[in-house]
Design a binder for these strands. Structure first.
Lengths: 144, 144
DNA sequence: ATAAAGCCTACTTAAATAATAGGAAAACAG
DNA sequence: CTGTTTTCCTATTATTTAAGTAGGCTTTAT
């Protein structure tokens, strides 16, 4: 019941790009340095985000990555689902395919549905804009 | 971000015992048959629940397991934490030990805290009594 | 032309998951 | 007191997932 590094790093990576105000494409190399995460691993993660259209890449020298939308248009849920896959707490809730035989008999399913709803309520409400705001608050407090 | 079979089976196992009204100890063998789960695997799971005091065992012939408390005194959270370990979505929230260097700088932590709270709100509120009630509702509907 | 970027695919290592297996110990029934 | 039924304990195994590493290819600004 843990979010993996892929999801966690993806969130930090997106936040890192969002906090860049240069207007220039942001390089993996720089993100990796700031976030203290392996470049090669970040490459793989951002590749998924790129294919999903959450970022846009610019190749070649002076290249890097840019966001494709306004920061308040990204939810944490979007970013996590792209990198983690489904956030449902049990696979019974995932595939309408491969469904469990006991579904119609299984009271625990109702618990999982409640849990799933609670999780979605959080991750689909928090946006990248929120994370940026929190980050700036924390930076302020850190300085004082 | 999935609950493992241990946690899921533990919940079904506890519910199975709770639904037994004979007053007699409930045997692993019977639970395994009803729930269609391997006896040997259930043994391991119930052993954890036993050591945590969530059930009481009676050894030897005519033995089995009994609940130690009223059904409304068990929350899903109790059962899941005993079998799954922490339900926190990231380990940053677990150990006051082994804490991440970036904690004071990391805005994502706030998201994880919100998510953790949302998860706890569900699992610590739903009791075994609730699950029993749901199960009986489902059984009714199934008959019709 | 060259250096600096991203792109792509394969590989590796370690840990966790999900069981299986086999026998020891306890307790009741006859 | 013997046999059967049940829990208890520990070890082993197979599979999958997580978390990276590695290396070469392609694109593009200068």
């Amino acid at each position: 019941m843990k979010i993996s590094t892929k999801g966690r790093y993806a969130l930090r990576l997106m936040l890192d790009i969002a906090l860049d105000h240069s207007g220039e494409p942001v390089r993996i190399k720089d993100i990796a340095a700031r976030q203290e995460i392996s470049e090669k691993y970040l490459e793989q993660i951002i590749s998924v985000l790129n294919k999903a259209g959450l970022v846009r890449s610019i190749r070649g020298s002076q290249g890097g990555y840019l966001l494709t939308k306004e920061v308040d248009k990204y939810t944490a849920g979007m970013i996590l689902r792209v990198t983690e896959g489904s956030l449902a707490p049990v696979s019974c809730l995932d595939d309408e395919v491969n469904t469990c035989e006991r579904q119609s008999l299984c009271a625990t399913l109702r618990l999982w549905q409640m849990l799933n709803t609670a999780i979605c309520d959080v991750v689909d409400k928090v946006t990248l804009a929120d994370l940026m705001e929190w980050q700036m608050q924390m930076a302020d407090n850190y300085v004082i």
